[in-house]
Design a protein around this nucleic acid. Structure first.
Lengths: 247, 247
DNA sequence: ACACTAGATACCGACGGTTGGTCGGTTGCA
DNA sequence: TGCAACCGACCAACCGTCGGTATCTAGTGT
């Protein structure tokens, strides 16, 4: 098998298993079986189970990097910030299928490590971009902010915690009650937008998300179909099912 | 041995070991040895290693509960909020010795679970109190807030992440460079205060922390001595030392 | 007041199943 | 011939269990 392909195959298998059953419940033996590989083969590509996680996070982060690098460089700071926010939200909407699996499980007990790692990776990529935009906006006079770094961190944290709402929406979409769930998400994003307005010293409605129309446009790509062929867990209960066969 | 005392002794031993070496690096056998107990005895008091963690968090949360319950009920919402904030900060300052051990290590790799659990427990206790104050303030007309829950969550998260700065201060205090470090912490708290002012629709300087004098008074009890008799880890490096004998 | 029993509580330590990781050996391609 | 990819038996360590023991209390009969 091609050198890169095997590694990618292991990553794929691990991704599916981890998102379906959680980091701690899945053993390397499970990954081996799913990837069709022996133990020796696995440890030839990854130095440990932790290393496998790092690889997974790194692959996930690559997408986020591309999104962050697509930040527009024209216009004033507000235009650039809005461009970034819209781009991020749109990316989230476009990749909702992949995201569901990750986020749905990551916020459950037993997956604190996964969640923390993903958030850290995201922070390392996104935070500098945000801080720079805000700093530039402040020196331009566009923004009137208390502290660029703290402001940026608040924006990031809110976006990260928003995903909890996002998962609910994605799951409700499958069950029909689309409109109500979507309304809740839009309301949440609007609130975030208004908060950003205040933090940046802007008149209400300046940040893209505070505009309901713009908000809905951002989420237009959101779908709730997803690959439910394999053992995707229903997000209803709080408890994670131990790694066994389904009933 | 008295029924409660043994449990407490185990908790004490576990606390020391976990804070010094991290959750995953410490085995129950280590706790057993430190507490002077057999495996059977341990599992008579705790159902699992996880249960031990829960007990530790619960004991830690008791303090926070008392602080939250001491919220003043007189005055308008702003007065009560300030009372709560000052009370929390003062409690942090008074218990800085105990806190250092927890926070210093908790933010290291390998302790994501501990950190997450502590933050969750804190959230469960503090968030409702904050939300209520903000809601009341909004209906009173004292506050003009976008969303009470999100605002409360931002306040909580900022306070939680502030501890990273707090640890630096506590460590620098031991090495002499007190003033500079303290200034940084005060600046951080002031920024937080100003942000709260905006989020609550208040004129700058309304929230207690935005006042530098009040800020310093809150931290007046902060000391950096601490019990360094046992094997407290130096917070310099990023890497956690594996559970073995020191070099 | 005393002896005896029953049961619960606290505790012990050997044992088992599982897991992450190692290592010498094998295959196949350049 | 050499090296990367891969195999699978094996190892040490860990969590949690289980049968068994000591101690203390409550109840009972005399």
């Amino acid at each position: 098998m091609a050198p890169g392909a095997r590694r990618e195959a292991i990553l794929d298998a691990a991704h599916g298993l981890f998102t379906a059953h959680g980091w701690e419940a899945v053993t390397v033996a499970n990954v081996l079986e799913a990837a069709g590989l022996s133990k020796g083969g696995f440890y030839h590509h990854f130095s440990s189970k932790e290393d496998l996680l790092s690889g997974l996070i790194a692959r996930f982060a690559e997408h986020a990097i591309r999104a962050a690098q697509a930040t527009p460089s024209s216009g004033d700071a507000l235009a650039r910030l809005n461009g970034f926010l819209i781009g991020s939200a749109r990316w989230t909407a476009d990749n909702s299928d992949d995201l569901r699996g990750i986020v749905e499980i990551v916020s459950r007990p037993g997956n604190e490590i996964l969640l923390r790692r993903i958030c850290d990776a995201e922070e390392m990529i996104v935070l500098p971009v945000l801080v720079q935009i805000i700093r530039e906006g402040a020196s331009e006079g566009t923004f009137d902010t208390v502290d660029a770094e703290i402001t940026a961190k608040i924006m990031l944290r809110l976006a990260q915690e928003r995903r909890e709402s996002l998962v609910e929406v994605l799951c409700l979409t499958r069950k029909g009650n689309i409109a109500a769930a979507m309304d809740r998400l839009v309301a949440r994003m609007q609130s975030e937008g208004r908060i950003f307005d205040r933090l940046l010293g802007l008149p209400p409605g300046s940040v893209a998300m505070s505009n309901p129309l713009e908000c809905r446009r951002m989420l237009s790509g959101l779908r709730g179909s997803g690959r439910n062929g394999d053992g995707l867990v229903e997000p209803s209960g709080k408890e994670i099912q131990p790694f066994g066969e389904a009933s």
